[in-house]
């Protein structure tokens, strides 16, 4: 697959009289392949929105290379923009305009027919509230309107920053189906979200960022498998005796109130066979595969700890990317292979 987005060595520093200098992106790399749903994850203030804004020409990078559909941006952005639909953070609209009028203005700007407005209103579920003023919309409805504005162009690449913000459970489900449907029809979707369960369900690949640097990138399954310790939860009538039997084989065992967990297990059938040999019949044998949330918290160093309050800049600072032959402003290409920086 060809990469739709390629970002390498992206640096951005914000300077202000009051807050001084803040490094938002520090040699960040990312690649998004065509047709995939790509999750973009990171703690608050880690540089996600800055990355997306830079990609869309809203923020000027200090250094690095951004390539969209094979062409460098922001130079070629005016030629590429018709292929990109985007919402960045929570977009604001004029409160006194109706949803339909808001979209019609954008459609006029883009030279699109009004019929397209009706299509996207239907698509995001706002058809019956299209003529209400935006100020009467709930947060979730405003978010749907924002997504509708991003869909107006029938884009090949959809960039969504926190699209599930304020959506009700049905809305989240609809958003998931929408993204999956778009990806199935060939649209590439780059989505930033903190609802990690959703990301795990819909994304083909993820990139995790912390303090402006890439922590990990790759297919979701690959990222999760790196944290798979081969653990299984075992429920059995006399679980303490059963745990002792399994422990005799040298496998790590942790005993809980009504079950035990065994790790480093290659073949779960061995548990059944071993315990059956001791007249212990297994009631439950569940693989404990890591979920994206636990992996995210671990990778970014934001696992909640009793009595400790994490601050926004307390996340992990990954090592700086090594670019032996590149100076700060030189264009670089980073291999998009999965890598984990614990």
């Amino acid at each position: 697959m060809a990469a739709v987005i390629e970002i390498s060595g992206l640096r951005k520093t914000y300077r202000s009289m009051r807050r001084g200098v803040r490094l938002a992106l520090d040699g960040f790399d990312m690649a998004v392949e065509a047709g995939e749903v790509h999750g973009f994850l990171g703690p608050n203030g880690s540089g996600k929105t800055t990355t997306l804004r830079t990609l869309l020409g809203l923020v000027r990078p200090d250094a690095g290379q951004l390539v969209l559909f094979g062409r460098e941006v922001p130079t070629a952005l005016p030629q590429m923009i018709d292929r990109v639909g985007a919402i960045v953070e929570s977009p604001q609209f004029f409160a006194n305009f109706s949803g339909r009028r808001t979209l019609r203005l954008l459609a006029t700007t883009g030279g699109l027919p009004d019929a397209r407005v009706d299509e996207v209103l239907e698509q995001v579920g706002l058809r019956d509230r299209a003529d209400d003023r935006v100020k009467a919309y709930s947060l979730g409805m405003k978010q749907r309107l924002a997504v509708a504005s991003a869909l107006l162009k029938a884009p090949e690449l959809l960039i969504l920053d926190e699209p599930a913000n304020g959506l009700d459970p049905a809305g989240i489900r609809e958003m998931r189906d929408l993204m999956r449907g778009l990806a199935d029809s060939g649209v590439t979707v780059l989505v930033s979200s903190h609802i990690l369960a959703e990301i795990e369900l819909i994304c083909d690949a993820v990139t995790i960022i912390s303090r402006g640097r890439r922590v990990v990138a790759g297919p979701v399954a690959d990222v999760l498998s790196r944290f798979d310790k081969g653990e299984f939860r075992v429920r059995v009538f006399d679980h303490v005796r059963a745990a002792g039997i399994i422990a005799e084989s040298g496998l790590p065992v942790t005993v809980h109130d009504d079950h035990f967990v065994v790790g480093d297990l290659a073949d779960p059938a061995w548990i059944t066979e071993t315990l059956a040999a001791h007249q212990l019949w297994v009631a439950e044998l569940t693989p404990l595969t890591p979920d994206l949330e636990s992996v995210f918290l671990q990778l970014t160093g934001t696992v909640p700890e009793p009595g400790k309050r994490h601050q926004v800049d307390d996340s992990v600072l990954p090592p700086a990317p090594r670019r032996p032959d590149a100076d700060e402003n030189e264009l670089t290409v980073t291999a998009a292979e999965p890598e984990v920086t614990p």
Binding site: L56, G57, L58, P74, L77, P78, I81, V84, A86, V88, P91, Q92, F93, F94, L106, T109, G110, S149, K153
Partner: peptide
């Protein structure tokens, strides 16, 4: 002024980056 503070300008630049 209202466009710059409301995000309207940002929306517009997502359609017309020049």
């Amino acid at each position: 002024g209202a466009e710059l503070t409301s995000g309207g300008m940002t929306n517009l630049l997502l359609w017309r980056p020049r």
